[in-house]
Amino acid sequence: MKQYDYIFTGAGLSALMTVYKMVVSGKFQNKRILLLDENAKQTNDRTWCFWTREATLWDSAVSKKWDSALFANVHFQRKLELHPYQYNKIQGLDFYNQVFELIATGKNIDFVQEKVLEIEESESIVLVKTETQSFSCSQLFNSIYNPSLVINQSKYPLLQQHFVGWFIQTEVPVFNPEQATFMDFSVAQKGNTRFMYVLPTSETEALLEYTLFSKDLLSKKEYETEIESYIQKLGIQNYQIVEKEAGTIPMTCYPFWKHNTQNVINIGTAGGWTKASTGFTFKNADKKSTELVSFLEAQTNFRKFHKKSKFWWYDLLLLDILDQKNETGSAIFSALFKKGNPPLIFKFLDDETSFWEDLQVIWKCPKGLFIEALLKRLFHF
């Protein structure tokens, strides 16, 4: 049995970000690190987007940036000037290549492509079993999501951000490559929160994603029918589907951190690192992984890592509303973006605003819905 200081079960976004930053810091060269994942991370399996005001560690993997975005519903359209932010797109394979190129330089890091079957924790050691091997470590970072933790409780709502996306290429120029469509709620809502998300990379190329914030997934045909209808609405007659992607991201304020122990920490989706109210993952994981690496340099008890903030409560109220009245999502986001200050909204969604700035954003939302949700939640606790 091979012994390590740190084992990462699952090599997803959060695990790779954390290991990458451990290498960059130069402070973990004497630690043996193992990454375990059944996926080799050698395909372009997803797209991440995030907004930022400054340079990041991931700039070399960014394939496209936008300075403006479009918000729309059936009643209005608004061009959102994002300055000082930019909206960034990263393709999965570019991110994986950047991370593994650096990891390969570290002789203290191993990657094993096997499925994790079992994790056993004793007082001083953590055992990990795969299909053919067993490993042990002092501390373990788990990013394998266990949906039953959330499904088998009723205190915290669970929605899904689920989507199907098509990368298409048109025969004639159609798109404005300088403007992303952040949310287009002009599509039929059908009792849910549904919108189109468009990332144009040239006048003839774009990723179009049909996205829902709701409890239940759709059939593959339903997503694709809506994408086809939207393409027709844009006046596109001849196009080629270059690539497809699909995914589902849990949206919940369930306190995953309560399952952390002294030597085992849940990270990524498994640790509640996804932004609960929007499903955005990349920026949150970037922040959390930086905090975690700093934590490792000073402390060893993983129970002390998590800190609950006011933004957790804001997210919870929105999820409470969408859980009970899923059809109100369009009205909430439309009220927010119709007259709100786009950079301030993005700052708020990044959990970086002061209380006074919070009020400026929240005041734009339908007040009755949130007051009702707050009262119900106070009694629920």
Rank of each mutant, 00 (worst) to 15 (best):
T274A: 09
G340M: 00
I265P: 01
E81C: 05
R194D: 06
E38W: 05
L296D: 11
W273E: 01
K64T: 10
P84F: 09
E357V: 14
G12E: 02
T248P: 11
T130M: 07
N326A: 03
F337S: 00
G268M: 10
D351R: 14
R46S: 04
T248A: 14
W363V: 02
A61T: 12
L208A: 11
T18L: 09
T52F: 04
E203T: 04
W48V: 00
E114M: 11
Y239T: 15
N108Y: 07
T269G: 04
V150P: 03
K310A: 15
L36G: 02
E54Q: 15
Q360C: 03
Q133E: 15
R194T: 11
G279P: 05
F71L: 13
S334C: 02
Q86Y: 00
T43M: 02
S229C: 03
A11D: 13
A206S: 07
A298F: 00
E131I: 13
A276M: 10
L344I: 05
F370Y: 12
V172D: 02
T353E: 04
L344Y: 00
D59Y: 04
D323K: 12
S148Y: 09
F305Y: 07
T204Q: 04
T170D: 03
I362T: 03
H259G: 06
K364G: 01
F111L: 13
K339R: 07
N108W: 06
G272P: 13
T261P: 08
A335L: 05
L70M: 15
M1I: 11
Q189T: 06
G106E: 12
K287H: 11
L149T: 03
P200V: 11
K364N: 08
T328V: 09
K244P: 06
T290Q: 07
T18V: 05
F111C: 12
P255V: 05
N176T: 08
Q360P: 03
K338Y: 13
E372M: 02
F379Q: 09
T181D: 06
I144A: 00
L102W: 00
F100T: 08
Y85F: 15
G235S: 02
T105G: 03
Q240C: 03
T328F: 12
Y254M: 07
A104S: 12
N73T: 12
V361S: 04
T204R: 12
I249A: 10
